[in-house]
Amino acid sequence: MVERLSLGPASVSELAKPLTMSLAAVVQHVQVLEACGLVRTQKVGRTRTCNINPAVLGSAEQWITNRRTEWERRLDRLGDFLAEDPANTDTPQEGTP
């Protein structure tokens, strides 16, 4: 749903079309996305149009990217540490890799 909305605004029924969910379930989903600020909706006549909130999507992606990068670096340093400190072991008979 978020993927679809990142392409542009859509009505609730347009969002529901490719999904195997009831319209009521889609409405509920949209409400959850709206509550967490990811999506903004606007009702014009009988049609509710949904828009992605790009600021929030950006920060959601950014935080995962940042945290992942931090851990990638950590686990690379762990690899360096394991390579340079073979003394730190309970299994001195360990063979060469």
């Binding site: 967490c36 992942r68 072991t89 360990e94």
Partner: peptide, 23 residues
Amino acid sequence: SVTHGTFTIDRSYPATPVRVFAA
């Protein structure tokens, strides 16, 4: 605001599980 996220990183090390755990 709250946003949720999850990620997974895989690494293989030329060290036994005992040594990796010890780190």
